[in-house]
Amino acid sequence: MSKIIAFTNQKGGVGKTTSAANIGAGLARAGHRVLLVDLDPQVNLTHGLGLLDAEFNVYGALLHEYKVKAYPIQERLALIAGSPTLSSFEKVKGDELDREFLLKDLLEPLHERCDYILLDCPPALGLITLNAYACATDLYIPLEAQLYATEGLEKVLEMVARVKRRLNPGLKVGGIFFTRFDSRKVLRRETAEVVRDKYPDLVLTSTIREAIALGEAPHLGQDIFSYAPTSAGAADYETLVKEILTR
Rank of each mutant, 00 (worst) to 15 (best):
P109V: 08
L118V: 12
C121V: 10
C121F: 04
P122K: 02
P122H: 06
G126S: 11
G126F: 05
G126K: 08
L127C: 09
L130V: 13
N131Q: 08
Y133G: 01
A134N: 07
C135N: 07
A136V: 02
I141Y: 04
L143M: 13
L143R: 01
E144D: 07
A145G: 09
Q146I: 04
L147N: 11
L147T: 13
G152S: 06
G152F: 01
L153V: 08
E154N: 14
V156G: 01
L157Q: 06
E158V: 13
R162Y: 10
R165N: 10
R165F: 05
G170W: 12
L171T: 11
V173K: 04
F178E: 03
T179H: 05
T179F: 04
T179A: 10
R180V: 04
F181N: 00
D182S: 07
S183C: 08
S183Q: 10
R184L: 11
K185H: 11
R188E: 14
R188I: 10
A192L: 09
A192N: 02
E193Y: 06
V194K: 11
Y199I: 01
D201C: 04
L202F: 09
V203A: 01
L204M: 15
T205G: 12
I208P: 00
R209Y: 05
R209L: 05
I212T: 15
G215I: 08
L220V: 12
G221I: 05
